[in-house]
Simulated scan of single mutants.
Amino acid sequence: MPGAEPFSSDGGDVGVLVCHGFTGSPQSMRPLAQSLAAEGFSVRLPRLPGHGTTWQEMNRTQWADWLACAESAFAELVDSCDRVFVAGLSMGGALALRIAERQAPHVAGLALVNPCVTLGDPRLVALPVLKHVLASLPGIASDIAQPERTELAYDRTPLKALHSFVQAFPEVVRDLPQVTQPLLLMRSAVDHVVPAKSSQLVLSRVSSKDVTEIVLERSFHVATLDYDADVIERETLAFIRRVTG
């Protein structure tokens, strides 16, 4: 899809991995990635497997593929940078947390926007059966308050892929106490995709002592493209600068 290309920039010795969300594309995180690159950071914003093409292709990918892609980009930054941060939107936030759980010594800090580690929809219990009957359901894209902004994402939700994502929730949540890194969590006051209890779960279970929570009052789920995009960029930059001293 035009506009769904990954973004990469080699800058200084501080790196930032940026991860987009489920059924989305790098487009949703490109403004943040570019703002970080403009400040001299080394940045990687990969296009996760199955994203930015067709929802049918995404239905042939799973959580392990998305995590492997994110960890590969993270490894690039670890090899070339002294300190590496991870930022993520929605599922990208879950990927960031999983990387912090699995590779704690190499993660300098986390900047999360509406991280998704639970959905809480009782209908999801039907997914193991439903995914064999229906290939997809209507999409969740473009939950944005600003009327002229649009997320480049699928208009259908591929159910096999969704089931794989949901199956990853327990391991991410189980290991949240292993997250000790400085944490910046930015959540929308109104989010029609991810429930508020997802951010609450993250905040209540991580072991991080340095935690900053910011409520985005003007934006919906895809806040990185919404009215508070400038807040996210400014706060993420300030957070990284503070942690790196």
Results as ranks from 00 to 15, higher is better:
Arg98Glu: 14
Leu112Lys: 02
Gly11Lys: 02
Lys131Asn: 09
Asp121His: 08
Ser72Cys: 06
Pro46Phe: 00
Leu119His: 13
Val211Asn: 13
Cys19Phe: 01
Thr236Ala: 03
Ala145Arg: 15
Trp66Glu: 12
Arg98Val: 07
Ser28Asp: 02
Ser28Leu: 01
Cys69Ala: 15
Val133Ala: 13
Leu201Val: 14
Gln103Asn: 12
Ala168Phe: 04
Leu32Phe: 00
Val172Cys: 11
Pro195Met: 01
Asp10Ile: 11
Gln34Cys: 04
Asp79Lys: 12
Arg234Thr: 10
Ala38Trp: 02
Asp226Glu: 03
Ser199Phe: 00
Glu76Tyr: 02
Arg123Trp: 03
His51Ile: 00
Leu112Asp: 05
Pro138Ser: 10
Arg83Val: 02
Gln56Phe: 06
Ser25Arg: 00
Val18Met: 04
Ala168His: 06
Asp230Phe: 05
Ile140Leu: 09
Phe41Glu: 12
Gly109Ile: 05
Val133Gln: 13
Ala68Phe: 03
Ser164Tyr: 11
Ile140Thr: 12
Leu130Met: 11
Thr118Met: 06
Val129Cys: 08
Thr61Leu: 04
Ala87Leu: 02
Leu17Phe: 06
Val117Ala: 07
Gln62Gly: 15
Glu101Val: 12
Ser219Thr: 10
Leu203Lys: 05
Ala75Val: 11
Gly11Trp: 00
Ser72Arg: 12
Phe85Glu: 03
Ser204Lys: 10
Leu237Ile: 14
Leu237Pro: 12
Ala33Leu: 02
Val172Gln: 09
Ala126Trp: 10
Val84Glu: 11
Pro128Trp: 05
Val179Gln: 09
Ile214Ala: 03
Pro158Ile: 06
Glu235Phe: 01
Ala73Gly: 10
Leu237Cys: 11
Val193Glu: 10
Gly92Phe: 00
Val211Lys: 15
Lys197Glu: 15
Pro147Ala: 01
Lys209Met: 06
His221Gly: 07
Val172Tyr: 10
Gly139Ile: 07
Ser25Val: 00
Asp121Ser: 12
Thr180Asp: 07
Ala100Gln: 08
Lys160Gly: 05
Ala135Lys: 14
Met186Thr: 07
Ser136Ile: 10
Tyr154Trp: 05
Glu233Ser: 14
Leu237Met: 07
Ile99Met: 14
Arg47Val: 00
Ala108Asn: 07
Arg123His: 07
Ala37Arg: 04
Gly40Ser: 06
Glu217Leu: 03
Val86His: 09
Gly88Asp: 10
Met29His: 06
Leu130Ala: 14
Ser136Gly: 13
Gly40Asp: 05
Thr180Ala: 09
Ser8Lys: 14
Ala189Asn: 02
Lys160Met: 04
Thr157Trp: 02
Gln146Glu: 14
Ser72Lys: 12
Thr23Cys: 05
Leu67Thr: 15
Ser80Thr: 15
Ser72His: 10
Ala141Pro: 07
Ala87Pro: 11
